[in-house]
Nucleic acid binder design. Structure first.
Lengths: 158, 158
DNA sequence: TATTAGTTTAGTAAATTACTCGGTTAAAAG
DNA sequence: CTTTTAACCGAGTAATTTACTAAACTAATA
């Protein structure tokens, strides 16, 4: 899981799309003005977002972008993953140049943590970010994904 | 909260320090060999870690680095923060060039999320990463920081 | 005194980020 | 049918960050 300014731009643009989506599609030119992100950079980001089905496009006058799915079915991790090239964190993959096993241990610990962050962001939807009333429910969902006895906890909470 | 390869290197090196710390200090040369990170790069990273008190150094032969605090009192967020220059995520800070308030809204939403990630990584100690038996307890602590009724949940769990 | 290993600074190659520019294509409006 | 709009596409590039090399110096040990 990589979390850079590039991902922030993508999430910000998607949030802008959710907040300003009324009747028709939203043009990148509008998002560019509102969020102060270069139009061409937005085009690059949305090209990747479109390929992942997170947005769909409408050409011509009055055209622009709409969400590919409902805002409560699009998760932050998807957006970040879409714009970031996935780089393998470990330089020793499985067998090979692992001397002593300790290299693998630290790498394994890191990837474990990285997966936890990913599952956390994978449980937060665009809509829940906008709608703060959903906040606690989303945290419960995040908890459920991060702990083994998550279901138990949630059932205790009703 | 920025999560780049630089932070990963720092956390990996700190994990190496915890795992291999027996009697005396650990030299960066050893970490460099084990984790395949350039010595000079480690020196730069540990310079920052030292300034934050996360490690302390011993010079001369047999010297090296030890943890500045106990491993269960050093948190991942501290390590990541130490090596990353903190960049302000919002281009409009407070007053100024906020046109319409919507720019601020999306920025606010992002910083909210960013803080959640930060508090999540701020609840995971180095030791808990190593010692998987602490895993569930740490998740509970993380939950407590992320939800308003966290204390309530923890008390329910005993 | 020689060696070890941290400390510091300057410089740099590589990668990534963010952007400019120039075009094309599809669809709507006139 | 022509013009306009805005998505689409690719090459190129400045700025920044990452990761590293090199060279010196300092403290502590053997």
């Amino acid at each position: 899981m990589r979390l850079t300014t590039k991902g922030r731009y993508a999430v910000t643009a998607m949030l802008d799309l959710v907040i300003n989506s009324g009747s028709g599609p939203i043009s990148l030119a509008d998002i560019s003005k509102r969020q102060e992100i270069s139009l061409s950079y937005l085009e690059q980001l949305f090209s990747k977002l479109r390929k992942q089905g997170l947005v769909s496009s409408v050409r011509g006058p009055g055209g622009g972008y709409t969400l590919g799915r409902e805002s409560n079915d699009i998760y932050i991790a998807e957006i970040v993953d879409a714009v970031n090239e996935s780089i393998d964190a470990t330089n020793c993959r499985g067998a090979g140049n692992c001397h002593g096993g300790e290299v693998c241990l630290t790498h394994h610990l890191w990837t474990d943590l990285s997966e936890q962050i990913h599952s956390f962001l994978g449980s937060i939807s665009l809509q829940s970010l906008v709608d703060k009333r959903d906040h606690e429910a989303e945290v419960k969902k995040a908890m459920g994904q991060m702990t083994d006895n998550g279901e138990q906890i949630i059932s205790m909470l009703g």
